[in-house]
Computed example of a mutant assay.
Amino acid sequence: MDVRIEQVVTSGTITLDETEYDVESNTYIVGDDDEVIVVDPAYDADAILKEVGEREVMAVILTDGNEHHLNVVLEVAAAGEEDEDNFAPIALHRADRLLWRDFFSRLAKEEDDEDDAKALRSLEPDIWLEDGGVFEIAGVQLEIVHTPGHSPGAVCVISEQLGVLFSGDTLHRNRPGSIGGQFEDLRKQLNSIGALLTPLPKDLRVLPGQGEETTVGEEDARWESWGELARDGEQD
């Protein structure tokens, strides 16, 4: 099997509820010598496209619609092409459409050219992700699992052939995923994590949106203890 997974780590900031957080994000490039799918580009399009090289970007999958996954998505989808017909399709879950529209509406306000501003306001993802949807790259399948909680449209991506789970910011090593320790809907997120992990092989690698990799077994063993985080949040 020629298919491989490459990782690019980038860093920047994200603003949530008027608070700015420093974030170090993992972008994953899945494919072979000819074509790839990019999962969660963030902050540094040049670094990501340098790793892609001359290979064709077949799709860009966003595991959520938060701004750090949107700030370079157009550049990565374009991959140096000038003709929009050659841009890679961008995929996002429909439940994060509001996050997408908020982000590109803010960009539109910064544009002096009204045509460019109008284009940004009308921009939509090319593919709406659905639970159970499948992408294929270099002979392997990537299955989408809707895991709401971190955001309404958060998803994870499973490839049993590669033995990996791309968990985005739904699940990080040793903890439920978060931005700056802040949770959108932790109880829903924990339910999604539990439903996700239970049927999966315990030795499946987990490649998260932030931090180091782990395994399904390691995180499944910790999952129940995270309920205390949700109870503490309800008492605050």
Rank of each mutant, 00 (worst) to 15 (best):
M1W: 04
D2N: 15
V3K: 12
I5H: 11
V8L: 09
V8H: 04
V8T: 13
V9C: 10
T10I: 01
S11N: 06
S11G: 10
G12Q: 02
I14E: 05
L16C: 00
L16T: 00
D17N: 05
D17T: 00
V23F: 10
E24V: 14
S25A: 15
T27Q: 11
Y28T: 06
Y28A: 09
Y28G: 12
I29Q: 02
D33T: 09
D33K: 03
D34E: 15
E35W: 03
E35M: 08
E35L: 05
V36R: 00
I37Y: 01
V39C: 04
V39Y: 06
D40G: 04
A45R: 07
D46E: 15
D46W: 03
A47D: 08
A47N: 06
A47R: 02
I48V: 13
I48F: 01
L49K: 02
K50C: 12
E54W: 01
R55L: 07
V57C: 12
M58H: 07
V60R: 01
I61K: 14
I61L: 15
T63K: 00
D64F: 00
G65E: 00
H69N: 14
H69M: 08
N71I: 08
L74H: 09
L74I: 13
A78H: 02
D85R: 09
F87S: 10
A88V: 10
P89S: 11
A91L: 08
L92M: 13
L92W: 06
L92H: 10
H93V: 14
R94K: 14
R97L: 15
L99N: 06
R101I: 10
D102K: 11
D102A: 07
F103Q: 07
R106N: 11
L107F: 09
D112N: 07
D113L: 04
D113A: 13
E114C: 09
E114L: 14
D115L: 14
D116A: 13
A119Q: 09
E124V: 14
E124K: 11
P125L: 11
W128P: 02
W128R: 09
G132M: 04
G132F: 00
G132K: 00
E136L: 02
E136G: 07
I137R: 02
V140A: 12
Q141G: 13
Q141F: 06
V145G: 02
T147L: 07
A154Q: 05
A154Y: 02
V155T: 15
V157K: 03
V157Q: 07
V157R: 01
V157W: 02
E160T: 04
E160G: 05
L162C: 10
L165R: 08
L165F: 11
F166S: 04
T170C: 07
L171A: 03
R173C: 15
N174P: 05
G177M: 06
S178C: 13
I179S: 05
I179E: 03
G180C: 09
G181Y: 11
Q182I: 15
E184W: 13
E184R: 09
L186P: 08
L186C: 02
R187I: 03
K188R: 14
N191E: 10
S192P: 09
G194N: 01
L196S: 05
L197G: 09
K202F: 03
L204P: 02
P208F: 04
P208G: 04
P208Q: 05
Q210F: 03
E213S: 14
E213G: 10
G217S: 13
G217L: 08
E218H: 01
E218C: 02
D220S: 13
S225P: 04
G227A: 12
R231T: 13
E234S: 12
